[in-house]
Amino acid sequence: MEYRVVHKDSIIGERIRAARKEAGYSQEALINELRMHGYKTPSRNTLSRAESGDLDALNGLPLGTIIGMSAILNCDPGYLLEERDHRYYEVEFVHKKTGLSVDAIFNIVDIQNDALKAVLSRLIESQNLQFFLKVIDEIVKLQNSESHGNTPLLAYEMEGRSMSVSKLRMLEWFLAEHIREEVNTIAADFAEKAKCDEKK
């Protein structure tokens, strides 16, 4: 039976308690689930002390029990054991590789509509993605500039009159129009594919 040596500043107990509550389990219910799945179960008192950070109780939890908890509470064992920053290894991997926030990743994961997932996938796959990102980066810079009282203007002529417009407003409109065109193209492709599928 394998045990871990838990140090005095450990937050393993806090993570077990937070994951348990988020999953909607009482301490007794979690112990019962562990028992049903064949894991060595702590007493209610031991679990309570462990969640409160009691070192003796934490060090008395077999590694297999913590792995069982992670399976029942739907989180990575490494998260409970303080080896990872996020509850899910996949989320931490994507976060570190892409820089996307955890909330952004979960928002993508939570999309239930397959058609919306397909549209989002096509947008990300698009050759225009890097172009869109550059425009967004320029918009952010202009927003920062305007917040400091500097409003860059673009000059143009209309019906022989000299006009000017905020460069930020123009770029925002430009980006919205191009994304709209991209989405319309993707939607048209899906509609065409649906027609072809109906004929088969």
Rank of each mutant, 00 (worst) to 15 (best):
M1W: 07
E83W: 11
L142I: 03
S145E: 15
E2H: 13
H95C: 14
I186M: 09
K97I: 09
Q143G: 10
P42C: 06
T41P: 04
M158L: 15
L120G: 12
T46W: 05
E198K: 15
F190Y: 14
V135Y: 01
V140M: 09
S10L: 00
V6C: 02
I108W: 03
F190C: 02
F132T: 05
I105P: 00
L55R: 04
D189I: 04
I66T: 10
E92V: 00
C196T: 13
V140N: 09
G78D: 03
R49Q: 15
E159F: 12
E198R: 15
E157V: 07
G64N: 10
H86T: 11
Y3C: 05
K96H: 09
F93Q: 08
R35A: 06
S26A: 02
S166A: 04
S52Y: 03
I67H: 15
P77C: 06
G68S: 02
L73Q: 04
S52C: 14
R84L: 12
I105A: 06
K167C: 06
E182A: 12
K8T: 14
Q130W: 02
D54F: 11
A57G: 02
Q127T: 14
V119K: 05
Y79S: 00
P77M: 09
N32F: 10
G60Y: 05
L30V: 04
H37Q: 14
I11A: 13
L171Q: 03
L154T: 13
F131N: 03
I108V: 12
K195V: 01
Y79F: 11
F174P: 03
S121D: 11
R161E: 12
S164Y: 08
R4F: 10
D76A: 10
R180D: 06
E181M: 11
L133N: 03
